[in-house]
Design a protein around this nucleic acid. Structure first.
Lengths: 221, 221, 221, 221
DNA sequence: GATGAATGAGTCTTCATTCAT
DNA sequence: CATGAATGAAGACTCATTCAT
């Protein structure tokens, strides 16, 4: 099977190892996202993998480290996406709206990631704290946001007293809540926040909200 | 306290039962909020109570039902608070801002509740679905919001295309995110969203955002 | 309700007690027969009664004694039925066949009793041993059987070397097995020994067997 | 023993696993037979084994499946014995008598099996139903019986209207009852059906009964 | 006599983890 | 590197029984 899928390499072993690692991470991501950290079962993860449970310990050391690795990879995907942001050629208003929409779309497309973040917060972000990689990950989006904000403020368009981190929180709040809390919100208020036919509505709502906030007339203050 | 709350009764046991039940719920709330549904230990809950583990099963039936009871009580507290809302005597703009601030404060004051809601969402809101009480709980806040919105729109102040449920989601998003995701947000961006000295900043930010959104000049659309 | 069902009595209490006792025994009989001694639940028995679990302990002392009481009543019913046997006016052959048929019918009509006896055997008949009543219960059927056997042997019709106890065992074997082992027998051999349309077949088979055995030509021996 | 039964293997573990499994089954058979399904304790079974309770779950999955495995092995032993039946070289009368005697002896020698069957009947044969193996086990004895019956009927010796299954029930009834109900029978009637000095008596009684039944003069019918 | 509340001691089961090869 | 077998510790849950009134 190896001979067909991949060219012969001096060290085919390493490739297999990487693939096995990736497969474990895929399954573990799903399982942790599905059931939470404590609800996830190492047995179940192993069973859905082509390797054995022993390999999980071999590659990752334990459940805790496996979850950390899952988080690291999940955040890596985001950072990757953020690095591909291409909004700075737009005027500040359009750029911010675009930024909000990209964030909106990204949350919608990665519900498992949202769940992992919720789970990690339940656990006080201890795995992020334990991860060397995640502590120094930085945020391309934050830098972009900062530059747009500066431009908008310089041109007088943006009047709000926020920095990039605050604005990031404001945008993320709505995107995150909509996906993360959809179950309780739906159960309590009878509205599905992620219904496909409402996506455009909420997407515009987010953009409108951010722009309105940033550009509001503050002469009265 | 006993002497005031309850008249002398031949059988004090009934009150003891209610008190024991309440004590179990208190501890269980903390334990579930601390560790998540699967992470919480029935043994631990029992150990921190003056009764035994056996009583938890006697009163609630099982871990699942105990969690449901915890949720029911937590949502009950909110509903209670919402019923005491007194904002309709204000003009629409002030009323909405006040509503947002009350929501903001409530979230800040009840981090355990926030955590329970996160946990319940990880589990697909299955306990809410299983609860007769929670399915029909309604939302006083939603009704108030609806009336203010109508008034504001009637007077021409509010121009945004949202109903009460959407607005509730918008306000809750920010309040919820700030508390629920503070750990990962802090770990990744180095900012504590619930730092005391930033409370006013974020509270105003929320109010500004909501008002700006609702009252934005939409003649151009 | 009492006033309607029963006439006023000086000591209505005692009647109620007897009725409650009987009701508990009814339910306990079903529950023990259904699930075995260890499988039966005192809680379940109490729940299906109009009284509470506490009453079971009040009246019977405990699960063990309750089971013993159930057995005592069940054997009492049999003894009662046996005392109404009226076969001695028949000729020995007809009398034995009738006796076998009555035994056959009784087993068929009291599957719960059969199950209780199976259960008691699993437990080494320890409850019978513990019961004063059951140790001295005697067996009207055995006496009748003995007299018929004697008559049959005296007249030269019966040639078999058996006493009443052996014959009772022979007859009971078939009747008991057919009811008690119907589940495994049916599952393994695909035949329902208690199917209604086979009842006559097996009833005759039993009678034929007993008569053939008792009257077989033994001149060759 | 090891040196004879098994060739040297690089990995002795597999054999150990089989041995451990067998040891658990041995102990479980005794414990289930002794106390019934619900009365048996997984802890007790484990304690009497060289392994731990954990292994029972590892090998069998649970108490229910362990009991099923115990039944499967017990029935397997019988099927094995039945396959070694060697009676078809005898004339029909001698063959049937021999068959009855073998059945009689087998029941006497396997009281634990009798108890397991009683227990399984209390539980409605649900474990047999759940077992793929037991549903399709067949019965060598039944086939042998069928052939002898046919031969005897062809030669005019056997006149009774029974098929192999009925005859099997008839023979088993007596053998089963004698062992299964010995406790209640002994307690109530003061006779030990399995007393050693009565074995020959009952063995002959069984044979006489079956032969008398099969060969009875039925010209009068 | 009668009863709702309470409970100590177990009961089955599962979990993440490691060992021997 | 890889792996099937094994496991100590703890998990949720249940049971017959008794207490206080």
């Amino acid at each position: 099977m190896t001979s067909v899928d991949e060219p012969a390499r001096p060290n085919g072993r390493i490739r297999d190892a990487a693939r096995t690692r990736a497969e474990i991470l895929d399954v573990a991501t799903q399982e942790f996202a599905r059931a939470g950290y404590d609800g996830a079962r190492v047995d179940e993860i192993a069973a859905r993998t082509r390797t054995t449970k022993r390999m999980i310990y071999y590659y990752f050391g334990g459940k805790e480290q496996l979850f950390t690795a899952v988080l690291e990879r999940a955040y890596g995907v985001i950072r990757q996406a953020e690095q591909e942001l291409d909004v700075e050629h737009l005027d500040p208003v359009a750029a911010i709206r675009r930024l909000a929409e990209v964030t909106f779309d990204h949350h919608e497309q990665h519900p498992d990631f949202i769940r992992l973040v919720s789970i990690e917060n339940i656990h006080g972000a201890e795995h992020i704290a334990a991860s060397e990689e995640l502590g120094t990950i930085g945020s391309p989006a934050l830098e972009v946001t900062g530059r747009i904000l500066a431009a908008g403020r310089k041109s007088g368009l943006f009047t709000a007293d926020v920095d990039a981190v605050d604005l990031h929180a404001l945008i993320s709040s709505f995107c995150f809540f909509r996906v993360a809390n959809r179950h309780t919100f739906g159960a309590l208020f009878g509205r599905d926040l992620v219904a496909a036919d409402q996506r455009e509505h909420y997407r515009r709502m987010l953009g409108d909200m951010v722009i309105a906030y940033l550009t509001a007339d503050r002469t009265e203050d």
